[in-house]
């Protein structure tokens, strides 16, 4: 899922300092699961902003709503009435949701409340780690199910580099060397010979480098 984290409250408050009424929109998708922008976080943020403004002597009115998914245009129109008289919309969705909101409400200033961080999963409750580099052409079958594109700090395809020591990456003793993990897994699988094949340069045109991407399934298109 998409992992996001809230921006500092002060930064959000500064962005809406001129507003009298704002709408905070949460998302019941990924950001609910990673506890950054669900119904609860939306209410906490609204309450915090209201109190902050009350203390400053410039009371703020808020409306809160949590969309099923802000990344799906069909869940945006139910907010049409609510956004009418607000001065700004604060979206607690990932970058995709923020854009759908901005796209529909062309005359509204839409503010992102979160920093969209990465695609990952949780390790323990309250901790998430990056696992997928969205490169557009999965090679996990070649690397023992460990993604070198995103988990190696240098995205090396023929690793590990000379900075790998005691199983850790050169950037930090807290970061596992992905290639050490790949080596261990391939060894356990009895497939170390696979690592002797020189992996050719990656086709990054399938990644973001080829421009914004699109996925199409014509057979499921309606109409």
């Amino acid at each position: 899922m998409i992992i996001a984290q809230q921006k500092p409250l002060k930064d959000i408050a500064a962005l809406i300092s001129e507003c009298n009424k704002v709408m905070l929109v949460g998302c019941a998708g990924c950001v609910t699961v990673c506890l950054a922008g669900g119904e609860k976080e939306t209410e906490i943020m609204a309450s915090s902003l209201r109190m902050m403004r009350e203390v400053e002597g410039k009371p703020l009115q808020t409306i809160t709503y949590t969309a099923t998914r802000q990344c799906d245009p069909e869940y945006i129109p139910p907010m049409d009435e609510m956004v009418k008289d607000v001065d700004a919309v604060i979206s607690l969705a990932c970058g995709v949701g923020v854009q759908y909101m901005a796209e529909r409400y062309t005359d509204k200033w839409v503010i992102p409340a979160l920093d969209t961080k990465f695609i990952g999963g949780s390790t323990v409750h309250g901790e998430w780690v990056e696992k997928c580099g969205l490169c557009g052409e999965c090679i996990l079958h070649k690397t023992g199910g460990i993604c070198p594109i995103i988990r190696c700090s240098k995205s090396i395809l023929n690793g590990p580099c000379g900075g790998s020591q005691y199983g850790k990456c050169e950037i930090s003793k807290d970061v596992d060397c992905a290639w050490q993990l790949i080596y261990d897994k391939m060894k356990a699988l009895g497939k170390l010979d696979k690592l002797m094949e020189i992996q050719p340069p990656k086709d990054w045109s399938k990644s973001r480098d080829g421009g914004p991407r699109k996925a199409v399934r014509e057979d499921v298109m309606i109409g």
Partner: peptide, 8 residues
């Protein structure tokens, strides 16, 4: 922490 941040 939130209370510190919002001035309460």
């Amino acid at each position: 922490k939130v209370l510190d941040e919002i001035g309460i």
